[in-house]
Simulated scan of single mutants.
Amino acid sequence: MIFKKLIALEPLNLIPSAEKKLESFAENVLIYNDIPSSIAEIIERIDDADAVLVSYTTTLGREVLEQCPNIKYIGMCCSLYSAESANVDILYANSMGIAVTGIRDYGDEGVVEYVVSELIRCLHGFGNNPNGKPRKPWSEIPREITGIKVGIIGLGKSGEMIADALHFFGAEISYFSRTRKPESEKKGYRYLPLNELLAGNEVLITCLNKNTILLHEEEFKYLGNRKMLFNTGLSPAWDEEPFVKWLAGDNLAYCDTIGALGSEKLVKHPQVVCMEVSSGRTSQAFIRLSEKVLSNITNYLKKQSEK
């Protein structure tokens, strides 16, 4: 079995050989190289397609799916952690018999390297600040990661990888998560309630699903002053007003993208270090992404053929 018409709604970051492979999955394949600017354009592009591929920059909500009754399969070429945080209305799609697949864990390695790199630069005073002035060590004398207290908020796959990397360099790791992680605790990682984690660590790293906010005004009070806060998620882990107030102290916030920071106006804030580029967008990540997207399509078509 193959699809009658497969549409890639926007750039998918697939490697060339993977894009070529898409031709074997459908009688007709159409790949768009720009992002649709409106719901009307999304619907026009999908037309009568029975398979749609989408990245993270386009939303397929109910208002789109209702106008595209031929869709049988949606392949998310981006991270899918939960139906609530997805840019596809998965619950409605499933209720209409549309299968939705997504992927995970394809860009984590680059994120880990980003956190380690920026933390080392901060502790040692390597390079320049965003304003171009030479960076000073976080403390008066350059420090190693050894012995630094790091709190991980959200110990999923990427959080665990970051914890392992920093633990290798000698950091003391504690974590907060919705569920306890016995295997992680065997490594010496301590579970702490969120407010205790915030108060007791010098470095805090949020590794949360998109649109998950855990840091409100009360949490920033516990976080206190003279702290480093890294956000590795796709969206802010905080409410903006208490975050900006917290930045006014002797603190630093690190985000790789404006999306993770939450506001373009904060990019030039003197206490913010934002690269404005996704640290997970590496050549290796695109290979892993491509392999997982093709595997999802292959498995779906195989199951349909077996029915």
Rank of each mutant, 00 (worst) to 15 (best):
L198K: 05
L65F: 03
D105A: 12
I120W: 06
C207E: 00
I141C: 08
N299Q: 13
I74M: 07
N195R: 13
V100R: 10
Y73K: 11
I46F: 10
L155S: 11
E218T: 04
N129H: 13
P182W: 05
I258A: 04
G200T: 08
V29P: 12
G110Y: 04
I71T: 11
S37H: 06
I39D: 14
S263I: 02
K21R: 15
A171I: 03
V267S: 07
A99P: 00
C78I: 00
T58I: 04
P11Q: 05
F176L: 06
L192M: 09
E27T: 06
L12C: 03
V267N: 01
L229A: 11
N296G: 10
T57F: 13
E140D: 13
I162Y: 03
I141R: 15
F243C: 11
L166C: 12
I35D: 05
R104I: 07
F169D: 09
E241A: 15
K245Q: 15
E291I: 01
N128Q: 14
G102T: 04
S305H: 14
I42C: 14
T59R: 14
L266D: 02
L192S: 10
N131T: 05
I120S: 10
P142H: 11
Y222S: 12
K245S: 15
L198V: 04
K4Q: 15
A248H: 08
Y56Q: 11
F126G: 00
L123Y: 02
